[in-house]
Simulated scan of single mutants.
Amino acid sequence: MMLLDGNDHDAAGASRRVGPQRVILILANSGSISPSLIDALEREFPWIRVEQVDTIDTACAVFSYPVALILVDRALMRKAEAEASELLRMHPHALTAVIEPYDRVLVTSISDVIRSPLIRSVLPMDLRLDVWLSIVRLLLCGAEYLPPALIHEAKLRDQKAQAYSDNGTAKTANVNMASLTTRESQILGMVSHGLQNKLIAAECGLSEHTVKIHLHHIIRKLGVHNRTEAAARFRNLHDGSRAMNEN
């Protein structure tokens, strides 16, 4: 029986470790991924074998090793999503990313990723090679990646939606406030300054009962729950108008 010294053991162990153990499956039209990029992947990750296919049927085949990562060309994304259940059944441990040509001009949106039954990450192809390989390493570890430009776009869309919502709320509040009669606006102004019904009645020459009726109408027209909310609505609108006039 032949015995190996320590160095021989290390060399044999390294040989075993670097052999292919997982597959990166690239689903893309023929010629869209350069051979040099595939070589770079296999050099960076010796335990990976890269398989490139151009049809969904071929992607759903059994490969020599388990598929760890599926990279889908943007042009084939919809077809892949239509067969998501079969792809996930055949490759249950694979994370899937869509390939985008450019980092700053993205076709895929956050909504596409959220709604997708398959895609969890977006991988731009025009990054520096070392950065690109680092992102692939993250994906192979089970992490998800979205380009900063995509996140920035989502934030801008949320801000616009919030501004639109706030503007709509303000317009509704203004419309509701405009529906008040002159007397109701007068009484609401007094309420906003902390006056109680008895003092409002004396100031306006009304009975307390009449003031209560006016307050009931004010609360209903403004769509609020009580006099406190009505007074807050009045102050907010008037403070906002004052700020606009000052600017």
Rank of each mutant, 00 (worst) to 15 (best):
M1W: 03
M2L: 10
G6D: 14
G6E: 14
N7L: 11
D10S: 05
A12D: 09
A12I: 13
A12W: 11
S15L: 13
R17E: 04
R17I: 08
V18G: 06
P20I: 03
Q21C: 14
R22S: 11
V23I: 15
V23K: 10
L25Q: 01
L27C: 06
N29D: 12
S30H: 08
S32E: 09
S36K: 13
I38V: 15
A40M: 09
R43C: 14
E44F: 10
E44I: 07
F45Y: 15
F45C: 13
P46C: 09
R49S: 09
R49P: 03
E51W: 03
Q52W: 01
T55W: 04
D57Q: 05
D57R: 02
A59Y: 02
C60W: 07
A61W: 11
F63Q: 03
Y65G: 04
Y65D: 09
V67C: 13
V67M: 13
I70C: 11
D73T: 02
A75R: 11
A80C: 10
E83G: 03
L87Q: 06
L88D: 02
L88F: 03
A94D: 05
P101H: 03
V105I: 09
V107K: 05
S111T: 15
S111K: 13
D112A: 04
D112F: 02
D112M: 07
D112S: 07
V113A: 08
V113R: 05
S116H: 02
S116F: 00
P117Y: 00
I119A: 02
R120M: 00
R120H: 00
S121E: 01
V122T: 11
M125D: 06
L129N: 02
L129E: 10
W132I: 12
S134G: 13
S134M: 08
I135K: 06
R137V: 04
L138W: 15
L140I: 10
C141L: 13
C141A: 12
Y145P: 03
Y145T: 04
Y145H: 14
A149I: 02
L150G: 02
K155T: 11
K155E: 14
L156N: 12
L156D: 13
L156T: 11
L156M: 14
S165Q: 14
D166E: 15
T172H: 07
A173V: 07
N174C: 09
V175Y: 04
N176I: 05
M177K: 05
A178I: 06
L180N: 01
L180C: 02
T181G: 10
T181W: 01
M190A: 06
M190F: 04
V191Q: 03
S192L: 00
H193D: 08
G194P: 01
A201E: 06
E203Y: 07
C204E: 09
L206R: 15
L206S: 09
K212M: 11
I213L: 12
L215R: 13
H217T: 07
H217F: 09
I218F: 04
I219T: 07
I219Q: 01
R220L: 12
R220W: 05
G223V: 03
N226V: 11
T228H: 11
E229W: 08
A230I: 11
A230Q: 02
R233L: 13
F234R: 07
F234N: 11
N236C: 09
D239C: 02
S241M: 08
S241E: 10
R242G: 01
R242F: 07
A243T: 14
E246L: 15
N247Q: 09
N247Y: 06
